Simulated scan of single mutants.
Amino acid sequence: MTITLEAKQLRAIAVEAKDVATSSGGSAPIFSNVLIREEAEGRVVFVATDLDTAIERQLVAVRGDLARAPLRTTVSAKYLADITAKLPKDAQVKLEHADGKLKLTSGRARFVLSTLPAEDFPAFPRADWDADFEIGGNALAELYDRLNFAISTDATRYYLGGIFLHRVEIDGQAMLRAAATDGHRLARAQIPLPEGAEGLPQPGVILPRPALKVIRGLIDHMPPDTEDTPRTIGVAVTSSRAEFDFGKGEHGETRFTCKLIDGTFPDYARVIPTSNDKLLTVEKAALREAVARVATIISDKTRVVKLQLAGELVTVSATSVEAGQATEEVPCSWTGGPLDIGFNAAYLQDVLGAIESDTVAAEIQDAGASTLWRADKDPDALFVLMPVRV
């Protein structure tokens, strides 16, 4: 039972398996291990799970002894990750299983690791999917990047701890809409509904933040888009689980499965303002840099910047008892009368960072009402930010 693999491929799955295994906390020892299962034609499957998520990767190996039974065991994901991290990137790694031990050899380095039986490794059964479709890797990455900052980290509001995916119809066109909120800010983005996603469970599904983080990292390891072969991800969903098939990438063929958040996402449409009658238009980079500079003097307790809107200037200011004052003027277009409005500096920076355009537009009613931010002339993404008293 001997196989040989590239160290860089083994390192990649070992690190991802370690992350999954670590999330299982103090559960049974088998959850700290990664399953190694040799299959036909030199294929080797690695699986790690904490029962909430599972990652499976298939690599191609060179089998050493064709007369022996296929390698099938589990070994500590942590030790496998830590060992392979210290090997040369272009090294070859030989794995040999015998007498309840996994022998790892690379060059002159040799390790003998304890194992647990593969039969004890938990199965993550396949499901009968309600929706099965393909989505562009870039599109999915963009949805995550735009919404990630608004996902709640409050464990008591667990149903806000992810991105809400649901179907909507706008002017006769079906759309896949994503939303996230932590109660202070809200982010929403949408793309045309992929073919096959019509069966997405209603009112929608909530993908948890930890799973989304893994998915985003796996997208980065997919082959780059080409004109003939854009990178796509297979997505299959039920009301309780989702599976993402990344196909063949630089580190092998990867499939990721996760449980969905069992909860009801709030009717977020109620907090999106529809009657804000004043419009601020400003260069995004100029405003973002001004906020960053002015916020330098703010203490962690206040973290508030004030925007003074008047005519063709927005004056960004902050006051600190310990440090003093800071102001900076930024050219803008403002359709209302003079208005002072305050925002949490970090929250405002998050919104500006998620907007993908040179110019941003903010619809404002007054200093106490929620504000609506979006890329200038972009109907597919919007952001709601609550002001704070100044």
Rank of each mutant, 00 (worst) to 15 (best):
D82S: 08
D82C: 06
T84A: 00
T84C: 03
T84N: 00
T84E: 02
K86L: 13
L87P: 04
L87V: 03
L87K: 01
K89P: 14
K89R: 14
K89Y: 14
K89W: 14
D90V: 13
D90T: 15
A91M: 10
A91H: 06
A91W: 07
Q92Y: 14
V93R: 00
V93N: 01
K94I: 12
L95M: 10
L95W: 06
E96T: 15
H97S: 11
D99V: 13
D99E: 15
D99Q: 15
K101R: 13
L102E: 04
K103N: 14
L104A: 02
L104K: 02
T105S: 08
T105V: 12
S106K: 05
R108A: 12
A109F: 11
A109K: 10
R110T: 15
R110P: 13
V112M: 12
V112P: 09
V112K: 11
S114K: 14
T115K: 06
P117I: 03
A118M: 06
A118V: 08
A118L: 11
E119D: 15
E119R: 11
F121M: 03
P122H: 01
P122R: 04
F124E: 01
F124D: 00
F124M: 07
F124L: 06
P125N: 00
P125T: 01
P125K: 00
P125M: 02
R126N: 15
A127P: 13
A127G: 12
W129Q: 01
D130A: 14
D132M: 05
F133P: 04
F133I: 00
F133A: 01
E134A: 10
I135Q: 05
G136Y: 01
G136F: 00
G137I: 01
G137N: 01
N138M: 12
N138E: 15
A139L: 09
A139F: 05
L140T: 02
L140Y: 02
A141P: 08
L143G: 02
Y144L: 03
D145C: 06
N148K: 11
N148G: 05
N148L: 07
A150I: 00
A150G: 03
I151S: 03
S152N: 05
S152T: 02
T153R: 14
T153G: 12
D154K: 06
D154W: 06
D154E: 11
D154V: 08
A155G: 09
A155F: 11
A155S: 13
T156R: 09
R157W: 07
Y158R: 06
Y158S: 05
Y159P: 09
L160W: 05
L160A: 04
G161H: 01
I163L: 07
I163Y: 05
F164Q: 00
F164A: 01
L165F: 13
L165G: 03
L165H: 06
H166V: 04
H166I: 07
R167T: 05
E169F: 10
E169W: 10
I170R: 12
D171N: 15
D171Y: 11
G172N: 08
Q173K: 15
Q173E: 15
Q173M: 13
A174T: 09
A174I: 08
A174P: 11
A174L: 11
M175R: 10
L176R: 03
L176S: 04
R177C: 09
